Simulated scan of single mutants.
Amino acid sequence: MDNIILYVIIALVVLIVLSAFVTVQQGTVGVTTIFGKYNRILTPGLNFKIPIIEKVFKRISIQNRSVELEFQAITIDQANVYFKAMLLYSVYNQEEETIKNVAFKFMDERSFMQALVRTIEGSIRGFVATKRQSEVLGLRRDITEHVKEQIDLTLEQWGFHLLDLQMNDITFDEAIMRSMAQVVASNNLKAAAENEGQALLITKTKAAEADGNAIKIAAEAERQAAQLRGKGVALFREEVAKGMSLAAREMQQANMDTSVILFSMWVEGIKNFAENGKGNVIFLDGSSEGMEKTMKQLMGLNQMMGPDNMQFKK
């Protein structure tokens, strides 16, 4: 009997000694209480605690945690928006006050998760309720920033910190999705038509510019050609006048009548008409009066054109 009691006492002592040691896994911390009141924090590794009276109240993970969310919101124009999001959060830090908040703010992990999810959903719903359906898809980043601003302070009071919130999917009712697809398709067609119109306008403009440049080049070429023709005619007339003047001086020195030059010009003119004229009949006044009249006209022309303003004597 005495041996049995001794064995029992030894077993109790062993159990008490063993219960004085507790192991805390890496990535977690332990929170102990004495008679239900917070006592201290146990760090990762082997820790000693007061047997029987000191108990490990909770083990808290200080690693990053993630949770997926699915919820619905309504826009200001009464469109249903469905969100799928991924939330990444962790314990704010390992300070004693922070760990105490994590350990004692909520009754259990389920209560904390429910409060966290409802807080985020409420923040997003409040933001979406001020926006139109057509704006929501373009505000993915704004929604994330709004949620972070709204719940960071609340989470810090609970001992947590929001690391990231990703909006993985934003959808609408099927009818709205179809109408949005039609809007996108019509906008694409409009853009294509505008691009085609711009391309046609550019093509027409370039063609008009090319035609205008061609006309300018042709006009410039014609102007230069006309100038050259004019210069050629002027040089021809100058050379003719010089030749007539020289011939007239030589005939005057020889005491000959200079009217012979005009008569020669008259004969050459008739010959040219006959050789190059396209008509079949040439009417000439061969009378002495007609010839005299023609000679006077040629003499007057010679008087106007002569470079030395010479006068031919009949």
Results as ranks from 00 to 15, higher is better:
Glu268Thr: 12
Arg40Thr: 10
Met251Ile: 09
Val233Gly: 03
Met251Lys: 05
Val13Arg: 04
Val14Thr: 13
Asp257Pro: 03
Phe263Ile: 10
Val22Tyr: 07
Phe160Gly: 06
Phe57Met: 00
Lys131Cys: 12
Lys313Cys: 02
Asn302Val: 05
Val22Arg: 11
Val24His: 02
Asn302Gln: 12
Ile52Pro: 02
Gln166Ser: 09
Arg223Phe: 12
Lys242Cys: 01
Ile62Tyr: 00
Lys105Thr: 14
Lys148Asp: 10
Met310Trp: 00
Ala199Cys: 02
Asn276Ala: 10
Gly290Thr: 08
Gly300Ala: 13
Met295Val: 05
Gln166Asn: 11
Glu238Cys: 13
Ser264Glu: 03
Gly159Arg: 04
Gly122Ala: 15
Leu18Phe: 01
Val117Phe: 10
Val136Thr: 10
Gln253His: 12
Pro307Met: 05
Glu238Phe: 07
Ala129Val: 03
Glu121Trp: 02
Gly279Phe: 07
Asn93Leu: 09
Tyr92Gly: 07
Glu121His: 05
Val91Gln: 09
Gly27Thr: 02
Pro51Ser: 05
Ile270Lys: 14
Ser245Phe: 05
Phe263Ser: 08
Gln182Pro: 14
Ser66Asp: 11
Met180Phe: 14
Met180Asn: 15
Glu268Leu: 09
Ile74Pro: 09
Ala208Glu: 14
Val22Pro: 03
Gln133Cys: 13
Met1Ile: 05
Gly300Gln: 08
Leu262Glu: 04
Pro307Trp: 02
Leu139Tyr: 11
Gln303Cys: 00
Leu246Arg: 09
Ala219Met: 13
Gln157Met: 11
Ala191Pro: 04
Asn3Glu: 13
Lys296Arg: 13
Gly122Met: 15
Phe35Asn: 14
Glu96Tyr: 04
Met1Pro: 05
Glu96His: 07
Glu68Ser: 10
Gly306Phe: 03
Pro307Gln: 06
Asn3Ile: 10
Val233Thr: 08
Gln166Glu: 13
Asn255Lys: 07
Val240Asn: 09
His161Ile: 10
Glu239Pro: 01
Gln311Asp: 07
His161Val: 15
Lys84Met: 06
Thr23Ala: 10
Ala175Ile: 11
Gln25Ile: 08
Met86Pro: 07
Ala11His: 00
Ile124Arg: 09
Leu137Gly: 14
